[in-house]
Simulated assay, not measured.
Amino acid sequence: MSEANVALPSMRVSYEAGALDESSLAATWHEQLQLWFDEAVRADLVEPNAMVLATADAEGVPSSRTVLCKGFDERGVVFFTNYTSAKSHDLKATRVAAATFPWLGLQRQVNVRGTVEKVETAETAEYWGERPRGSQLGAWASPQSRVVANRAALQASLTGIERRFAEAEKVPVPPHWGGWRIRPESVEFWQGRPDRLHDRLRFRRTNDLWTVERLAP
């Protein structure tokens, strides 16, 4: 057993970076998320828009992976991906997802859970136009989540796509690619506190009404 494994039980951090109470909470979940996101950006955290996306397939088998949030507002939290990927198959089967923003540098996390929907074609096209050309070509070339023979096979696919669109000023959006929006049923804001008595404030939606609840840590 390595020294690091032996030390695991004693690895801990005293969370003393801040507090979260009801009086300081924004009026809506998306306004609060914007406040914390802006602070994560100002703190120069690595990829502050990265979030861990959790899904389950039709049999209830869970999966998680890190994706990049590309927008949020009162409607929900948006990310983009291949619609033939494993995550998209899960989302089509269950229509629910959860995501966590792990802002460890600020001793914070935000947990979003809700139903999912595809974003409008126009919204996908707008974001697609902002992507680097290399990322656009990669989206065409990669059969995401499928087994491939080797790295050379991926490179060969990319080379073929580069030839296909060599004369194109703009690369079109692939028909198998687009955005998903998580429409929250609950959004929890977690702030680490000393002695593991963390602050957990949750916005929870019942029908169209939102309430704020404090959860025990």
Rank of each mutant, 00 (worst) to 15 (best):
S14K: 15
S24D: 13
S24F: 02
A26W: 00
T28R: 07
L35H: 13
V41N: 04
A43D: 00
V46N: 11
E47V: 08
N49E: 12
N49K: 12
A50N: 03
A50I: 07
V52I: 02
L53Y: 06
A54D: 01
A56N: 09
A58E: 14
E59A: 15
G60Q: 10
P62R: 03
S63I: 05
C69E: 06
K70Y: 08
V77K: 07
F80E: 00
N82S: 11
H89R: 15
H89P: 00
R95M: 07
V96N: 05
A98F: 09
F101A: 06
W103D: 01
W103C: 08
L104R: 09
Q107D: 10
Q109E: 02
G114V: 02
E117L: 08
K118D: 00
A122G: 07
W128E: 02
G129Y: 11
G129T: 01
R131D: 01
R133E: 06
Q136V: 00
Q136F: 01
W140D: 01
S142C: 09
V148F: 09
V148I: 14
N150M: 10
A156Y: 00
T159I: 05
I161Y: 02
E162G: 14
E162F: 08
E169R: 15
P172G: 08
P172S: 14
P172E: 08
W177C: 03
G179F: 04
W180I: 01
I182V: 15
P184M: 10
F189P: 01
G192D: 02
D195F: 14
L197C: 09
H198E: 03
R202S: 09
T206L: 04
N207T: 08
T211M: 06
P217V: 06
